[in-house]
Design a protein around this nucleic acid. Sequence first.
DNA 1: AGATTTGTTTAGGTTGACCTAAAATATCCG
DNA 2: CGGATATTTTAGGTCAACCTAAACAAATCT
Lengths: 222, 222
Amino acid sequence: MFSQAMQDYLKAIYKLQEQGGVVSTSALAEAMGVAAASATGMVKKFASLRLVRHHPYQGVVLSKAGEKMALEVIRHHRLLELYLAEALGYTWDKVHEEAERLEHVISEEFEEKIFEALGRPTRDPHGDPIPAKDGTLVVAEHDRLSDLEPGAMAVIRQVSDSDAEMLRYLGTRGLVPDAAVEVLDKAPFNGPLTVKTGETAHVLGREVASHIRVEARAADEA
Amino acid sequence: MFSQAMQDYLKAIYKLQEQGGVVSTSALAEAMGVAAASATGMVKKFASLRLVRHHPYQGVVLSKAGEKMALEVIRHHRLLELYLAEALGYTWDKVHEEAERLEHVISEEFEEKIFEALGRPTRDPHGDPIPAKDGTLVVAEHDRLSDLEPGAMAVIRQVSDSDAEMLRYLGTRGLVPDAAVEVLDKAPFNGPLTVKTGETAHVLGREVASHIRVEARAADEA
DNA sequence: AGATTTGTTTAGGTTGACCTAAAATATCCG
DNA sequence: CGGATATTTTAGGTCAACCTAAACAAATCT
């Protein structure tokens, strides 16, 4: 019985850890949209619950238990996104927000039901891996756009009839187009992504039907 | 932006009003499982928001606005129950609990999607009417078991392969079998319900496939 | 190394929803 | 009618999650 707030904090720590490596209290506060003091308080609580290890000024690290809890929430989130899109015909730009609220209240049974209904998927619509029930998560090489080589091509599965909608959605995921620049600045190359329609292709190790393509280019080409 | 607690209070007031007529603060507290003082506080808040009219010692009455909000939550609840059962294969005994949590977080869009997916239903699996989006609710004659004439017959739609499960579920809804006695004590007749299997029939104004039947009998017959 | 900048924590306060105990106010009944 | 009983409200407190402002500690720059 962990509060919604706690679940959100765990998820945020996990995501920051995944991207940045070191997670400072202030980065956490920033990500959560709360004051630094609030993050400190929550970190102390987590530390006392052994969900994180905390070395002041050096960041927090999720313990095995903490990571597992974070992954449970993320599993819920990704399964929900997929379910909303596939089963209820949500457009991708709406899926995230709805899943954000539902992820905290669905039962294990609900999770199980949609998991089965979707045919036991292992990746969500954007190619992000869905953690297993046991807290296992396999992150493949080149899973993230920011890991792509210059000139590599990433194809994102079709979302809806409206490309604009999908792009807006990807924007909220920090990928395209504004946020992409930000993400890519930390990547091995620098430069804008160009976005245009394409056709079916293999993407991130998996064949998908698609008509939208995200091309990564080196900065000088732009 | 009304809190989950407030939504639950509104729903509780609505239900009490529907059954009992007069809703005292203590009855509300009882229904909500909180101390009387807590109910008083919430009632005062509602009164200041013009969601209820409150005449101390004479009970609270939902205003038009309050009733509309209550019905929105109930609509969510009933649509969810139906969806969980029909689309995800939930057994009836699990449906209520899950809907109870989901009802507070789904968006209007989610509501709309499942409403359409279900073919714009007007009644939930137990025959309870589903309020319309605009807060309209038609309560047909004899909609409730407790309104039935002695000897009348109510058929409840099939739930799962396990009759026991369904009966347990109905129990939580205050209908069968323990709770039924309580409800029926306030009804025009007195006595136990006998519950046994039957076959397809018209029920509460609507034809349903069923193999479970709830028979209401007058006390002297029992 | 010392001072400034940056990041972190502490101290103290607010809010919403709850609680218990005590006080106030109706209702009921002889 | 007046007191016993029941209901309702007030008063004061707790807890979780947030806040601001101030104190403190580390890192960084010259």
